[in-house]
């Protein structure tokens, strides 16, 4: 079982992306669970969401405290990634919405040596492809590439149930571009 924690800010689609991930996995006939962290919904406030992915039915109905993967979709929170690593497993994965250059200038600090860090520049990707800032779906593309689940086509199917027209096209474009551009930070 893979346990994932998403970080971002209200309005950036933190809950939505976790929800889309779970639905895409289930679409493939595997097991997944998504649940948001609940609190007052305020635009701009830090928000968390959680996803479990498994080949077996998932029985646990409690929170995730030691995630295998942490994904930070907000740009500034990504820069301050050290504040969001609570409980991350020593061999876990960390996904940041940054360019390699920016992360180079920050450095990996005291992140445990076994943790692999991946960067996808959601800001650049979404601005170039759509002219807007959409941080969540590129990070899903990056994740899908690295953990090899779910397939891009499955995510696209779920996106189709949520978005239409231009917005759907935008999301698919940035999903695919982040999928191909995600890089490991060494």
């Amino acid at each position: 079982m893979i346990e994932i924690r998403w970080h971002g800010r209200g309005g950036q689609g933190v809950v939505t992306v976790s929800d889309i991930l779970a639905r895409s996995v289930i679409y493939e006939g595997k097991y997944a669970q998504h649940f948001p962290e609940f609190g007052p919904e305020r635009s701009g406030a830090p928000v968390k969401a959680y996803t479990r992915i498994s080949d077996e039915p998932i029985e646990i109905h409690s929170g995730i405290y030691e995630p295998d993967i942490i994904i930070i979709i907000d740009r500034n929170m990504s820069k301050d990634f050290y504040s969001y690593l609570d409980g991350l497993k020593n061999d876990g994965l960390l996904f940041l919405n940054l360019s390699k250059e920016i992360l180079n200038s920050i450095g990996r600090g005291r992140v445990p040596i076994g943790v692999k860090i991946y960067v996808a520049d959601s800001k650049k990707i979404s601005l170039e492809e759509t002219g807007r800032l959409i941080f969540n779906i590129p990070m899903l593309g990056a994740l899908a590439r690295i953990i090899r689940t779910p397939k891009l086509e499955s995510i696209e199917e779920i996106l189709k149930t949520r978005f239409s027209d231009e917005l759907l096209e935008y999301n698919i474009r940035i999903l695919k571009r982040a999928y191909s551009e995600v890089e490991m930070f060494e």
């Binding site: 639905r23 289930i26 669970q33 998504h34 649940f35 609940f38 109905h61």
Partner: peptide
């Protein structure tokens, strides 16, 4: 059904 724990969780 448990509020949020089940009402707001996506499951198969």
């Amino acid at each position: 059904l448990d509020g949020f724990i089940l009402t707001h969780s996506v499951e198969p």
